[in-house]
Amino acid sequence: MKYLVMVQGSQADYDAMNGKASERYPAWTEDDVQAMFAFMEKINEGLVRSGEMLDGHGLAEPARTRFVTAGEDGRPVVADAPYDRTETLIAGYWVLDCDSLDRVTEIAARIAQCPVPEGSPDYPVVIRPILESGRDI
């Protein structure tokens, strides 16, 4: 079965990764950032070797997000940042093809061990099964 596995983050997290601390978000050092990237690279390499990884990417900071909704007149309403800088959004994802929910949960548990500076917020790794057809709802 295919699964979408997501990690979360906020603009404040991205700012912290760029060395800008705030109340709940300690500044990351270059070593912290490199440790995180090395950890994720190792996860990705293992998933490619096992044949379970179909796709995966980190996403740009929330400040570069665009939200599009339908206006009352049916025309799109576009907003660049209707969120608080600490609101969490998807920070990265993997599309995995795993034999079972237990297996993808094992992978998510490994991802959850990603090194971050002490005092950083703790976000869950989110697993969502990908529906193969509308009949799976």
Rank of each mutant, 00 (worst) to 15 (best):
L4A: 13
V5D: 03
V5I: 09
M6L: 13
M6E: 05
V7A: 08
V7M: 15
V7F: 12
G9L: 01
Q11D: 07
A12H: 02
D13K: 00
Y14F: 12
A16D: 01
A16R: 01
M17Q: 01
M17H: 00
N18S: 14
N18M: 11
K20V: 00
K20N: 01
K20T: 00
A21N: 03
A21Q: 01
A21K: 01
A21I: 02
S22W: 00
S22Q: 02
R24N: 13
Y25D: 00
P26Q: 11
A27M: 07
W28F: 04
E30I: 03
D31R: 00
D32W: 00
V33C: 02
Q34N: 13
A35H: 02
F37E: 02
F37G: 02
F37T: 04
A38T: 04
M40I: 10
E41G: 14
E41T: 13
E41Q: 15
K42I: 02
K42R: 14
I43M: 12
E45K: 15
G46W: 13
L47G: 07
V48Y: 08
R49N: 15
S50R: 12
E52Q: 15
M53S: 10
M53D: 02
L54Q: 13
L54S: 06
L54A: 06
L54N: 09
D55T: 08
G56T: 05
H57S: 11
G58V: 08
G58K: 04
G58F: 04
L59N: 04
A60Q: 12
A60N: 11
A63C: 07
A63G: 11
R64K: 12
T65I: 02
F67D: 14
V68G: 08
G71E: 13
E72S: 08
D73C: 04
D73H: 03
D73Q: 05
R75G: 05
P76Y: 08
V77I: 11
V77F: 10
V77T: 08
V78H: 06
V78T: 10
A79K: 13
A81E: 01
P82D: 06
D84C: 09
R85H: 09
T86M: 00
A91F: 11
A91C: 09
G92F: 07
Y93R: 15
Y93Q: 10
W94S: 03
V95G: 04
L96H: 14
D97Y: 10
C98F: 11
C98V: 15
D99N: 12
S100D: 04
L101S: 07
D102L: 10
V104R: 06
V104S: 05
V104M: 06
E106W: 07
E106H: 14
E106Q: 15
I107E: 02
A108G: 15
A108C: 13
R110I: 06
I111D: 08
C114L: 09
P115V: 06
P115E: 07
